[in-house]
Amino acid sequence: MKFMEYSLLYIFITTKTYHMKTPGKLLRTAATGMLLLAASFSFAQQQPGLARFEGVFQKSDNKEAYLQFTVKNGILTGKQLWNGQEYELVRKSDTDFVSKDEEYPVTFIKDGTGEVIKTKIMNRSEWIRVKDYKPRQPATLTAAQLKPLEGRYRFRQDNNLYLSILVRDSAIVLKQSWDGKEVQLVPESELVFFSPTQFFPAAFTKDAGGKITAITCFHKDVWDKVE
Rank of each mutant, 00 (worst) to 15 (best):
E150P: 01
V183G: 01
K120N: 12
K225L: 00
S125M: 15
Y87M: 09
F194S: 01
S60Q: 11
V130G: 11
K21H: 14
V98Y: 13
G33F: 12
S93V: 05
P23Q: 01
K63H: 11
E64Q: 11
L35Y: 05
P187A: 00
K59V: 14
A202V: 06
V186G: 02
V226F: 07
T32H: 09
R168F: 05
G24A: 15
S177T: 03
S99P: 03
G78T: 10
V222W: 00
Y10D: 04
K147M: 08
P187Q: 02
K120T: 15
Q46C: 02
I11F: 05
P135C: 01
A139F: 06
A171Y: 08
L8F: 13
E190R: 01
L149H: 02
K72M: 04
L27F: 13
E190V: 02
M122W: 15
R152F: 07
A143L: 07
T17D: 10
D224I: 04
K110D: 11
F3S: 12
L36I: 10
T197M: 09
F69M: 03
L35S: 06
I128S: 14
L191T: 02
K16C: 13
Q184S: 01
V192Q: 07
V56R: 06
Y18V: 14
K147D: 15
A65L: 03
W82L: 08
D169E: 13
L9C: 02
G84H: 15
I75F: 01
K175R: 14
F200L: 04
E102K: 02
P148A: 10
V130N: 10
P196L: 06
V192H: 10
F41K: 06
Y104H: 05
Q157N: 12
S177N: 09
P105N: 04
E102Y: 00
A214G: 08
I165E: 05
K100D: 10
T95R: 12
F69P: 01
S40R: 00
E126R: 12
G114N: 09
D158N: 09
R136Q: 14
E188A: 04
A39K: 04
T32S: 07
R28L: 12
K175N: 09
K79W: 07
K100G: 02
L174Q: 08
K2P: 04
K131I: 11
I109G: 05
H19T: 15
Q137P: 10
R168I: 10
E188W: 03
K118R: 15
E5T: 08
T205R: 00
L37V: 13
T14R: 01
M20P: 06
K134M: 09
F193K: 00
F12Y: 01
E86A: 13
K16T: 08
Q45P: 03
